[in-house]
Amino acid sequence: MSEHVHSLLGPYAVGALEPDERAQVERHIGACADCRDELSSYLEATAALADAEATAPPASLRDRVMAEVATTSQLPPGAPGTADAPVTDPIRVAEDYGRGTGEDTRDTAGTAGTAGTAGTAGTAGTAGTTGTTAPVGADTSAARDDLAARRAESRGPRRWLAALAGAVATVAVLAVGVFGFGLGRPSDDAAELALAKDVMMVEAASDATKMDMDLGNGQVVMSSRMDAVALMGNSAPMPDHGTEYQVWLIMADGSKVAGPTFMPDADGEYMAYVPNDLDGVVAIAITCEPPGGSAEPTTDVVSVVEL
């Protein structure tokens, strides 16, 4: 696992990770000084790339910034004693607020409060509701949706369809993702689309292998090229009351890597996507877990696919 995270440091430094992978790296560097130093050196290289692009901004920018700063509060330092806070914070800065409006930065109470729990889905929701009216230079996209989701919405489908023209099955999966699935909340269309895109990419990979999975009519699709596993199916029963399905990667040494949770929609259709290095994975398992998932399986396996 740590090797997997390590391989993400480069992509992290160039801002090329999906939010979940970004969070994975941030958790890791909070605890691993070697990776922190390595990432720091990569960030110096990317900073040099940025410096080489330096272009004098108009003087009016300075005026606008100084005027806004004059009315903008400042966050207090991170809570002392939280070892991971300072490390992840510079990164989380933009993670949590970068896609909000400029107004977010003025909301001291709100941002300070959410900063403590940065990185959770709950934080995202909070940030979105603390904004007020449209500030100067604010994003026109009001909601601070999942980044990948927004991108998928704005430019993803065309690009991916173009890139994968001819992959008929793939297109079908995307269409299902857009129109058919009811995963999560209704407002999560964009997130669903992003999920569909991820699943589609796994399915379209040249080395994709598929196996049936006994959860409704289910399939597991794996691609080492994409470092990912996708699950999809229909006619699945709902999980035990008050729980969600969670995916687990079972490693050769018996350890288990926690994957995402998912819920079938009213028709029993479901999809899940697990970005993870496949080396050493010997089985994929599904359990019922409390909403949000568990760090270790807490119930018996509902379904398992041995690789």
Binding site: I29, R36, L39, S40, L43, E44, A47, V65, E68, V69, T72, S73, Q74, L75, P76, P77, G78, A85, P86, V87, D89, P90, I91, V93, A94, Y97, G98, G102, T105, R106, T111, A115
Partner: peptide, 16 residues
């Protein structure tokens, strides 16, 4: 503006 707002969260151990 975000730099101003979040300056206290900068940690020199994590990069320049």
């Amino acid at each position: 503006v975000e730099v101003w707002h979040r300056a206290a969260r900068f940690d020199r151990e994590a990069g320049t």
